[in-house]
Design a protein around this nucleic acid. Sequence first.
RNA 1: UCCUUCUUAGCUCAGCUGGUUAGAGCACAUGACUGUUAAUCAUGGGGUCCCUGGUUCGAGCCCAGGAGAGGGAGCCA
Length: 477
Amino acid sequence: MARLRIKDILKSSPTEQVITVKGWVRTFRNNSFIALNDGSTNNNLQVVVDFTNTDESILKRITTGAAISATGALLASLGKGQTVELKASSIEIIGDSDAEKYPLQPKKHSLEFLREIAHLRFRTNTFGAVFRVRNTLAFAIHQFFNEKGFLYIHTPIITSSDAEGAGEMFRVTNFDIANPPKDEQGQIDYKQDFFGKSTNLTVSGQLEGELAAMAFSDIYTFGPTFRAENSNTTRHLAEFWMIEPEMAFNDLTDNMNLAEEMLQYVMKVALEKNKEDIEFLSQRLEEEEKQKPQNERSELSLLDKLNFCLENKFERITYTQAIEILRESNHNKKKKFQYLIDKWGVDLQSEHERYLVEKHFKKPVILTDYPKEIKSFYMRQNDDGKTVAAMDILFPGIGEIVGGSQREERLEHLETRMAENGIPAEELSWYLDTRRFGSCPHAGFGLGFERLVLFVTGMTNIRDVIPFPRSPKNCEF
RNA sequence: UCCUUCUUAGCUCAGCUGGUUAGAGCACAUGACUGUUAAUCAUGGGGUCCCUGGUUCGAGCCCAGGAGAGGGAGCCA
């Protein structure tokens, strides 16, 4: 008999038809009622066992975590809490779960504990919801770009370029690390390494993406990215997924429009497709908020926050305007910032970003036209000679979720900026070729996928929105 | 990497001024009950008090060093 998914069964009406379901036992109450889950939804199917006619040895094996198959008639439920239930005529134990050793209990566990058993945390309501939402968001991103005619390009994971300036890199080698070959100067001789040169894991697909955009016009990458930074925060991972579109013949405004449209598109899809999961997460968050003191509680629920971001345009201001707002704020005048804003040119700290987003505008903010000194070499210089056509999108609770820019398409300007940043031109001659042959204005951005998942699920630690987090001193599984 | 808080049963946590045999709830086991919703009730088993060293007649508690975790900062997506 074909296996039906619990999500579909719960939506159907009690047909009294005999069906088979397979899943894992969440709880077994009263020797009669199995809450069965198969991961298709957070809601469980109630399977009713007639314990007077079921073998004692089978009943004993219906334990939390066990995989079972149940066959029986789908009936209207006699109890409250569900409309249909399965009256089991036969129960088969597919995989036992020793109740004494199984770490998950039918109770609330801390996220820290579940992080230690990440291989089992998929089986909880919270992580079930989080990873179903993550799946929807990933698919929606592809759908969005596909509908817009963007080409999905696979940029390399192993790269020989170490000039992207996006952070510390993980080295890739097949040398015997205890005894690597040396050259005449006693330096490690990478000519003898697998690729015949020094190689690393990518920190960004942007530069390669730009190459493709110079032929296909509109492209995007969506893949894993690696940073060997010693970052211990709730917003950083050593291995994360990034979406990086790149568009030829586009300027900074086009870039902002696309980013905003994309974020709203995927949030809308998630709210539609994973309504129940997001409602669950929203409720979970509200209960967690009740533990906090009144003044630390957020004004909006997760659902309200998402809907608000869907319905309202993001605020767009320049760096210079932001500095003005911050400098004139009471917060600054009363010296409540740890880093006080005094002069133009300083980099914004997260306390300043949070103030703009959470206190001043109370909505997502796009900051543009930063001083060139605090931004990357490839960003296009504005006519004022001081700023570059950069944009960061700041989200409440997350901070920077998108970082992008219009790229410097003028060869001489780019070469000057590279020289100023100490990047040798021969390292990136392939990149400079795009400016030598048919250069054109173009723009793009990077979106940290896990930060998006954080925002949409309302989770607060990035390690809880990726199945197997990699961070300093942690690489389990 | 810096600041800060924490580490006691499978989980979440109490543990007084340093004092004798370290507790609770949940989980688990056994039994009762049998239309339950994290069922309920009764009984029971379960401890390297993170590690190492020190102070003390005596350390879960005090001191030093180390490890791990949480939160914040920096770097960023």
